[in-house]
Amino acid sequence: MGECNVLKLLYVDDEPELADVVVRSLRLDRGLDVRALHSGAEAIALAAENPWRPDAVLLDVMMPDLNGPDTFTHLRDILGKQVPIIFFTAQAQRSTVQRLLAHGAAGVLIKPFEPLRLAQDARRLIEAWPDRAALPRAAGLAHEPMLPMTCAAPVKT
């Protein structure tokens, strides 16, 4: 697969053990170039200064120092609205999900997650983001999951 077909996904989570599992799960989609960082400050620095610019962001909600929603605000200012940002959280309450979507997220993925399905769920939300620039389409997963979706996207009105 050529480099032009790769979607660059930045994953931000303060839990290194979970990040390792998430990165391996996301890399089941050979069309994703996944980078993991462990704080909102690292993500903001990468977005502002690094030539590796993400096409999409998967962002933990509960992080010390700079939480997910605050990091989201900074990333949105740097990356613009065309880069979909997806929240990743264990807080599955409807009110929390609605609050995160109202913040402007492309969607919310819920922990715990199905590792064999995570890349597909993330890609589905990324590709549905109406403001995104033209991004590479799914390159095919190593596994075609048959479980229900574990994500929420904004309702179109």
Rank of each mutant, 00 (worst) to 15 (best):
A43P: 05
M62Q: 15
A56M: 14
I44A: 09
V57L: 07
V61S: 06
E42I: 12
M63E: 00
N67P: 09
A48D: 10
H74G: 04
M63R: 03
L59S: 08
I44V: 15
A41C: 12
F72E: 02
L59M: 01
V57F: 11
N50K: 03
H74I: 03
A47W: 07
N67Q: 03
A45V: 14
A48W: 12
V57Y: 06
R76L: 08
E42K: 15
T73F: 01
L59N: 02
A43W: 03
D60M: 13
A45L: 15
P51S: 00
R53Y: 03
A48V: 13
N50W: 00
T71H: 10
G40C: 11
L59Q: 11
A41V: 14
G68S: 08
D70I: 00
A43T: 02
P69Y: 05
G68L: 06
M62L: 14
N67F: 03
P54F: 05
D60C: 15
L66T: 02
D70W: 05
L46E: 02
D70A: 09
G68N: 11
M63D: 05
D65P: 00
H74P: 01
R76P: 04
L58Y: 03
P69F: 01
P54I: 04
G68R: 11
G68I: 02
T73K: 12
F72Y: 07
F72C: 01
A41F: 12
M62H: 15
F72M: 02
V61Y: 10
L46K: 00
E49S: 13
M62R: 15
L59R: 06
A45H: 14
W52S: 08
A56I: 09
V61D: 07
A47R: 04
T71E: 13
H74Y: 04
L66H: 04
L58M: 13
H74W: 01
A43K: 06
D55H: 01
N67K: 00
P54C: 06
F72N: 03
F72V: 02
V57Q: 04
F72K: 04
L58C: 07
E49L: 14
V61Q: 12
P51L: 01
H74D: 07
G68H: 10
F72L: 01
D60A: 13
T73V: 07
A48E: 13
A47L: 09
M62W: 14
P51G: 02
V61M: 09
E49V: 14
F72I: 06
T71C: 14
R53A: 13
V61C: 09
V57A: 11
F72W: 08
L75N: 01
A48H: 11
E49I: 14
P54Y: 06
D60T: 11
R76S: 06
I44H: 01
L75K: 03
N50V: 07
W52P: 15
H74V: 08
V57N: 02
E42Q: 15
A45I: 14
V61E: 10
T71L: 09
P54K: 00
I44E: 05
P51Q: 00
M63Q: 02
G40Y: 12
N50P: 02
R53N: 01
R53L: 15
W52E: 06
E49P: 03
L59F: 05
A45R: 14
W52H: 08
N50T: 02
V61W: 12
